[in-house]
Design a protein around this nucleic acid. Structure first.
Length: 280
DNA sequence: AAGACAGTCAACCGCCTACTG
DNA sequence: CCAGTAGGCGGTTGACTGTCT
């Protein structure tokens, strides 16, 4: 069939669930060649899918390093914190959860955390606190609390561009010293999954840079902001988790390295950058 | 046993933005 | 500056699975 408007042949792409064979083709192709332009991947990999579908399948399922396991309490806690701050910015939240995708975080929020939140509404002080915070456009109470808790966060310094695009009240929060999210290059993580020692393939200077960038990334959200947020995340979590399961969880100040799990240096706190998948 | 219902999650859709010629 | 294209993102859908009656 030919599209009259553009004179290009219309390809009927396959839709629906991916078969193991399709997964294998896509995985093999990308690990061998990188993705380059996603629109050209299906044809080159011998798939009847469109580029977007391939990209999504790779990012959400095939990409090395994904966990595919249940969310831990710690991960749920981080999601709660970040959602309070960022709203439905699933990709940004997922950046702080190594091995998790935005789709996974979104689904988990919608199917688990949101319900838990609803469940404890009325039975926890958090509910009323959250409501009172959210009910005020611009969230002055939250802003005030954050101001009191951190001199790194200055609302008065918020660029207008940030304020004007706020889908949630919290979007107006400007975190000072916001460093750009560091990227992991394809070449950096690929060896981890091919069974090779990363140190053999990554130059010393690259690894040093990676570490430095990790540190930078920890400033995306200031420790103090997270400390503040811990106050009502604690209430939330304790509202639905059995104390025995939650097991003596101490909600005092935690270094950001701990919050974001920097013990896992390979991924933690780093943004996997898919843009760098370029054909050699 | 089987149908109804609810929950979960992979995948799609459509919008937006960035990039390129 | 503009149009076309590709990629990224969040919302939504629908297939599949488990549980209930």
């Amino acid at each position: 069939m030919v599209c009259k408007a553009c004179e290009k042949p219309k390809v009927s792409y396959k839709k629906g669930l991916w078969s193991p064979d399709e997964d294998q083709r896509l995985r093999d192709f990308i690990l061998k060649h990188g993705h380059g332009r996603w629109s050209s991947v299906p044809a080159r990999a011998g798939l009847q899918r469109n580029g977007k579908s391939c990209r999504l399948r790779w990012i959400n399922y095939l990409r090395p390093g994904l966990k595919h396991s249940d969310f831990t309490l710690e991960e749920e806690r981080i999601v709660m914190k970040l959602h309070t701050i960022l709203g439905n910015k699933w990709s940004q939240i997922a950046m702080h959860l190594p091995g998790r995708t935005d789709n996974e975080v979104k689904n988990h929020w919608n199917t688990h955390l949101k319900k838990k939140l609803v469940k404890i509404e009325g039975s926890s002080p958090h509910a009323s606190m959250t409501k009172s915070l959210e009910s005020d456009n611009g969230c002055p109470k939250l802003e005030k609390l954050i101001d009191e808790n951190s001199n790194q966060i200055s609302l008065s310094e918020s660029p207008d561009s940030l304020k004007s695009v706020s889908p949630t009240p919290y979007r107006s929060i400007h975190v000072a010293n916001h460093a750009p999210s560091p990227k992991i290059l394809f070449a950096d993580w690929l060896p981890m999954f091919s069974g090779n020692d990363q140190s053999l393939s990554a130059p010393e200077s690259d690894r040093v840079n990676c570490q430095q960038e990790s540190t930078l990334n920890s400033e995306v959200l200031s420790p103090k902001l997270l400390q503040f947020d811990t106050i009502f995340t604690e209430v939330f979590l304790h509202g639905f988790e059995d104390a025995r399961i939650y097991g003596g969880f101490k909600l005092q100040f935690e270094p950001v390295e701990q919050i974001f799990g920097f013990h896992d240096q390979a991924y933690t706190g780093l943004e996997l950058n898919h843009d760098v998948f370029v054909n050699p």
